[in-house]
Design a protein around this nucleic acid. Structure first.
Length: 436
RNA sequence: GGGCCCGUGGUGUAGUCGGCUAACAUACUGGCCUGUCAAGCCAGAGAUCGCGGGUUCGAGACCCGUCGGGCCCGCCA
């Protein structure tokens, strides 16, 4: 008999079906036994009042949770069953018996384990329905990202993660031994996505980025997924912000329509994306912090995490928005390719998008003329040589362009109100963790 | 890198003015139970309290060292 997913069992009432999966829970109540099977999509309950049906589960001593099996049975509508259906008149076939005690329980509503324990055993902990839902939503966010941009004439690209030049901004990079020469793990697809604007005009990429910063916080890891966008013929960073708004809205819409079960399981508070997300200039934001909180951060070149939380509060109270664009970050804190604000010296045509008080997106308008790049590199004190092929593209005509990058795990962390970014990462890589 | 904090059965915790035969929950094993769905009830097994040294009649607890981890800050397209 052909196997069906557990999520389709309810469409087969009155028929015998075969499901395959893991023994999620086995509840013996004396005369009646409940078997819950979990497969890659969901769970289904089976019930038996006849022990001989379940001999395959009892004949091997100590057969326990996570045993891999096939279960055939008659689909019956039953109001008392979770999901309204259950399997009866069972036949069990065991593929992979499991007798060992799990390192942490998977069949409770929530995993009760410390973060290190959870991550140490991520290979099994990620099977838990609540953990799994997080990563299904990650897939949904990537799908929504792609769908939104594909619908607007963008082309998906994959750029190299092994790169030759180390420095893009001040961020540290991981060095590799590349056949005896130094090479580096890409800290961003920035250069390549800009270059590809010359080819496709509108490009995006979903891929890993590597940061060798020894930071140790709840919202940083050393490898994460960056949802990158870059496109040509922008007026300024506001063109970029408008697209960023639509991309976020597209992602959330995809989650809402296609991932309702996961959102419900995790009790996600879906934000509403305003037609126009409120924005505030960096300098005004600092004034606002002084007025509202009496802390004078004027003159600081960047916003602190506390500043961002305050601004997030303000956006919520003043605009009823979970999102806030902060625009015009000082040039000194932005990478050399950032386009300056032509009307406000020292400030840039860049932005961050704060989501519930945490930086979610960084973006802006880039320089697009060769001469500007030479001047910017000199200003930043970088030699031009390592950037030679990057610079080449600007000698042969690049349009005004810009783009942004969304941190996938940041999006999930804020959307799901997770206390640590690592909980939105399948197998986190941080200061002291490279396994599993 | 700076500051603060934590290491106790598989897991999560209690025990911290030194008196422990190390407690509770959950997972696990066995028994009972005909509608469970975080099942329930009963019983059982499971911890030389991160490691090393010291103080003491006596250390899970106090002191020193060490290893591991967490949080905040910093650093960070």
């Amino acid at each position: 008999m052909e196997r069906i997913p557990t999520t389709q069992v309810s469409q087969h009432i009155g028929q015998r079906v075969r499901v395959q999966g893991w023994l999620h829970a086995l509840r013996k109540l004396g005369g009646v036994t409940f078997v819950v099977v979990r497969d890659g999509w969901g769970t289904v309950q089976a019930v038996s009042e006849d022990e001989t049906e379940l001999t395959a589960l009892s004949e091997t001593a100590g057969l326990g949770a996570e045993t891999v099996l096939a279960l055939e049975g008659l689909v019956v509508a039953e109001a008392q069953a979770p999901g309204g259906v259950e399997l009866r008149q069972l036949a069990v076939e065991v593929f992979t018996p499991v007798a060992e005690t799990l390192p942490l329980p998977l069949n409770k509503r929530q995993i009760k384990a410390s973060l290190p324990t959870l991550l140490d055993h991520a290979v099994v902990a990620n099977r838990h329905p609540a953990r799994r839902a997080v990563f299904r939503l990650a897939a949904g966010a990537m799908a929504g990202f792609r769908a939104t941009l594909n619908g607007r004439g963008f082309t998906e690209i994959q750029t190299p993660k092994i790169v030759a030049s180390a420095t893009e901004s001040g961020s540290n990079v991981f060095q590799l031994d590349y056949f005896g020469r130094p090479a580096y793990l890409a800290q961003s697809p920035q250069f390549y996505k800009q270059i590809m604007v010359g080819v496709f005009e509108r490009v995006f990429e979903v891929g890993p980025v590597f940061r060798a910063e020894p930071h140790d916080t709840t919202r940083h890891v050393n490898e994460y997924v960056s949802l990158d966008v870059e496109f040509g013929f922008v007026a300024n960073h506001f063109t970029v912000m408008a697209l960023a708004r639509d991309v976020i809205a597209g992602i959330l819409e995809t989650l809402q329509t296609g991932y309702a079960a996961e959102l419900a399981l995790l009790e996600a508070r879906l934000p509403i994306v305003p037609a126009a997300i409120p924005h505030i200039h960096f300098a005004e934001a600092q004034e606002l912090i002084l007025q509202r909180h009496g802390v004078d951060v004027r003159g600081e070149p960047d916003l602190s995490p506390q500043d961002e939380r305050w601004l997030g509060q303000w956006a919520q109270e003043e605009h009823g928005s979970d999102f806030l664009f902060v625009t015009g970050y000082p040039m000194v804190k932005r990478p050399f390719y950032t386009h300056p604000d032509p009307t406000r010296p020292g400030y840039s045509n860049s932005f961050d998008l704060l989501f519930r008080g945490v930086e979610l997106i960084t973006g802006g308008q880039r320089l697009h003329r060769y001469g500007e790049y030479l001047a910017a590199l000199e200003q930043a004190g970088y030699p031009a040589a390592p950037f030679e092929s990057y610079l080449e593209v600007f000698r042969y005509g690049m349009p005004p362009h810009g783009g942004f990058a969304i941190g996938l795990e940041r999006l999930l962390m804020q959307l799901l109100d997770l206390p640590n970014l690592r909980l939105a990462t399948l197998f986190p890589r941080d200061l002291n963790r490279v396994t599993p």
